[in-house]
Write a protein that binds this DNA or RNA. Sequence first.
DNA 1: TTAATGATGGGCT
DNA 2: GCCCATCATTAAA
Length: 179
Amino acid sequence: MKQKILAQEFYLQPTLKVARELLGKILWYRKGGKVLSGKIVETEGYLRNDPACHASRGMTPRNSVMFGPAGHAYVYFIYGLYNCLNAVTQKEGIAEAVLIRAVEPIEGIKGKTNGPGKLCREFGIDRKLNGTDLTQGNFVILDSGEEVGKIYRAPRIGIRENTDKLWRYYIDSEFVSKK
DNA sequence: TTAATGATGGGCT
DNA sequence: GCCCATCATTAAA
């Protein structure tokens, strides 16, 4: 099985397409000699002009990474306890991103990763990784070359606006946070 | 079984 | 001061 780092061009595709295409890809993080990895099984798209998107009301110190180049990690802290991981899409100045909601453990993971806060806890992802380039280095997303089966779509979780949009995507896995 | 709630703190309409 | 792209625990049924 050939594994290859996803290039920046991948993240320049339409955001909702990136959200679908990230399913089955591998989140890979080398942390001090140890490798943590997992297959992405659930994502959500967040678009410019989408009221549920952090960047919809303009740039702030927190969301500025979303306005930067594609293929970088946007990590934010929420509810006083948890971090969430996004992959920034679109060129600089266009703030869109894909939230990684759940992964299936492959390597180095001890606990459950069936939720955005939980997967960040298990991977040890925090705001120090905010702005990291996901196309090179120790924290990347790999194309596994694996075929993905049926892709399901559903409303996004935990938001108040635009709840009628089916911009959450997932594949068959026991690690999907909610069906 | 499902539904409601408390924890906890940074960002900001 | 209020809101929040969550989770674990408790309460209700």
